[in-house]
Amino acid sequence: MKNLNITIGPSNKLGKYDAHFLIKLAALLKNGFTMQQALIFLTEQYEVIKAQDKAAALALINSGAALSAVLKSLGFSKSIIMQVSFAEIHGEIITNLEQSGEYLNTRRKTVQKLIKTLQYPLVLVSIFIIMLVLLNYTVIPQFNDLYSAMQADKTSLVNILTFILNYLPYTALGVLIIIMLISVTILLITRMKNTKRAAHMLLSIPLVRTYFKYYVTYRFSREFGYFLNNGLEVKEIIMLLKTQTINRYLNMTARMLEEKLLAGISLSEAIEQQNVLDQRLAVFVSHGEYNSDVGKELIIYSEYSLENIIIKIENLTKKIQPVIFLILGLLIVCLYLVIVLPIFNMMSNIQ
């Protein structure tokens, strides 16, 4: 069985045109171009690729290198190289390229939607924090001096609001530091050498757990389904997933599945016992075992898993945005009261 020992190349040379490249490559192959002809034609067309990178890619193509190696030189992501590497074995290159292009487009649209959802509130928060800092060093000290000069007492409400505004920038900074620390911690966990330990820790983090499960389920069901549809036996697929070095979570899942299958249980039962996979996948596999179409069921579920990831991200942003606007509204009211109430208080004392 062929091993998939592929190292991942540098950053994406095609930028936002990576999905377009894959879809156009599939179209050229459909229209009778050979892989080499199609790759040469496309690589020469994209001006976004730097001259030295283009020369390196063309040298690889002309030497007869595999598609996965060419995509690696163009800086495609780890997930795309993994899918193409598998497709080179199971023979569904055109379909895989089309689906990979759609996947990149969907992922980019999701990221753009997330940025659009958050950028306006984040700009408002940034402006408001700057205003708070300026007010704390300019306006509020002036009011304090004015109160002292007039020997007027602040109301309890003004004292509370002033206290909130004084410490709000520090609170915002503290929250930002906590978020950064959590992000760095998750990044360090994903880079741990012990795959089982890393998976266990990711599954113990509430928000991360759901996305991690759907991600592993998506990868597993997609690749396993393609292999089954192309005539490979379960034993061969597990051996292939065990020997590949592109996705270590697939490697770990394959090893655990092999242990369960050797113990004499069915594939659906073995999947159900994997904590890194969505438990509902076992229902699809069981249904596929009943009608002898496990591969199709797995591919359907892979699409369902990807849709779930997108839906959950969209729902999360929809929940975050109203909260940010509510906090901003309350802070603006507090700021307004801190400025206006002392004025009314001093006017009443003068009268």
Rank of each mutant, 00 (worst) to 15 (best):
A172H: 12
R197Y: 02
P206I: 14
V184T: 11
L207D: 00
K196I: 10
T210Q: 08
L203R: 15
M201V: 14
V184N: 03
A149L: 05
K154Y: 00
T155L: 07
E223A: 10
F220H: 05
Y215V: 14
M180V: 15
V175H: 04
Y137T: 11
Y170A: 09
Y218G: 06
T162Y: 05
L207M: 10
D145M: 08
N166H: 06
T210L: 09
L187K: 14
T195V: 15
D145R: 08
I160P: 03
Y167M: 08
T162S: 08
K154W: 02
N230T: 13
I205H: 11
Q142K: 15
M201S: 07
V184P: 00
F220M: 09
R197M: 07
Y211C: 13
R191I: 00
L157W: 01
Q151E: 02
Y226H: 14
T155I: 05
G225V: 15
Y215F: 14
N230E: 11
L165A: 05
V133A: 10
F224K: 06
Q142R: 13
L168Y: 01
M192W: 08
I178D: 01
T171M: 15
L161G: 09
K196G: 12
L228T: 14
N230Q: 13
V139S: 03
A198I: 02
N144W: 07
K193R: 09
A198C: 04
A198R: 12
I177E: 02
F220A: 04
V133H: 10
I182T: 12
I189A: 10
F227D: 13
L176H: 08
R219G: 00
N229G: 06
Y167H: 06
L207G: 04
L135V: 05
N229Y: 01
N159C: 06
Q151V: 12
L134V: 06
Y218F: 07
I205R: 10
